[in-house]
């Protein structure tokens, strides 16, 4: 008989005491993984005055919570957070550790992984337990999917973006064990977060928008990009992008949809001037209707949507905007 399998951990994240949705989504997925491994789900949360919030973790599926509660943990402090998580992991030997692909998670996860001497997979879009009880971490690459495993080192670590896994059904009757963490004595920090400033995002948030218009390299230039933005405006949609569009500087990184960006699940998705690279397409989850406009009839995007228009988007989209305007006016007068 194998030795007792370690737990599945989720390193949760909070902003102003509010637990991020991705942390709960990961607990939901951790529950499934833990079931196959016949082990428990444990959550680490560092913050201030988080004791009132921990019930959410139990409701989402956690069996045990490691709670670090102190004013100096209120916002992410790289060294303190890393120290505490590394120490805890060394002590409890988790089998799997999942972290959200947030700015914090993307910095914290590699710091922890390197200190624990283990592997880390970025921006996974699926996690399954294989026949050998090993975590298969799937990421899109080279027009397909690749599976990455960490066969020997533990924990098996992965970061996952918000929206990859659904929100778990909350069971408010669930409870569990809370372990209060000792706050380390004054370590003289070499890096400190002085302040976190958040601005209200402009426009409709991509993640919850009923209509998403996404633009890619096919826009050609900033003028072409404005045409696509025009389509999103008339539809009252959120405007998303692909990495090439971000690299061109037409839009901000925050608008990028896909593996290392945002996950969207709109009623209607319209992809304009994008080829349909999997890194982007995995970001569209459960859209009701999907449309692609691209001038290359062989673009892989046409194998991934419901309606395809083979045309130059810079010519087609302005006409589409006019037609939609007509339709909207008709609808109002009817």
């Amino acid at each position: 008989m194998n030795k007792q399998c370690g737990s599945v951990w989720v390193v949760a994240e909070q902003i102003d005491c509010r637990i991020l949705p991705v942390s709960l989504q990961l607990i939901g997925q951790a529950r499934k993984l833990a079931k196959e491994l016949n082990t428990s789900v444990e959550t680490v949360i560092l913050g201030d005055q988080m004791d009132k919030r921990v019930q959410e973790f139990f409701a989402a599926g956690a069996d045990r919570i490691y709670l670090g509660n102190a004013p100096e943990l209120a916002i992410y402090q790289p060294e303190m957070y890393t120290e505490m998580i590394v120490k805890l992991a060394k002590e409890h030997q988790p089998e799997i550790m999942l972290i959200g692909s947030t700015s914090m998670g993307t910095e914290l996860a590699p710091l922890v992984a390197a200190r624990l001497g283990t592997g880390l997979t970025a921006h996974c879009i699926d996690l399954i337990i294989d026949d050998n009880k090993i975590l298969e971490q799937r990421i899109p690459a080279y027009g397909g999917l690749i599976s990455i495993i960490c066969p020997e080192k533990r924990p098996q670590m992965a970061t996952i973006a918000s929206g990859v896994f659904p929100h778990p059904e909350l069971d408010e009757s669930r409870t569990g064990e809370i372990i209060h963490l000792e706050i380390p004595n004054e370590i003289s920090p070499r890096v400190q977060t002085l302040e976190i400033v958040r601005e209200e995002p402009e426009g409709i948030p991509l993640e919850s928008a009923p209509i998403v218009v996404a633009g890619g390299a096919g826009a050609g230039d900033i003028e072409g990009w404005r045409i696509i933005a025009g389509l999103s405006e008339i539809l009252n949609a959120a405007l998303g992008s692909t990495r090439p569009a971000v690299d061109e500087g037409w839009t901000e990184l925050e608008t990028m949809i896909g593996q290392s960006g945002k996950m969207v699940s709109p009623e209607l998705y319209i992809g304009v001037g994008l080829s349909g690279e999997l890194q982007h397409m995995v970001g569209i989850v459960g859209a009701k209707v999907m449309v692609a406009i691209n001038n290359d009839a062989n673009a892989p995007v046409f194998e991934q949507v419901d309606y395809g228009i083979v045309d130059d988007c810079r010519e087609f989209v302005p006409m589409l905007i006019e037609k939609i305007k007509e339709y909207q006016e008709r609808k109002i007068t009817c």
Partner: peptide
């Protein structure tokens, strides 16, 4: 030539 579609093909 890669973008212009004629008879359903570039």
């Amino acid at each position: 030539a890669n973008e212009r579609i004629l008879y359903g093909k570039p």
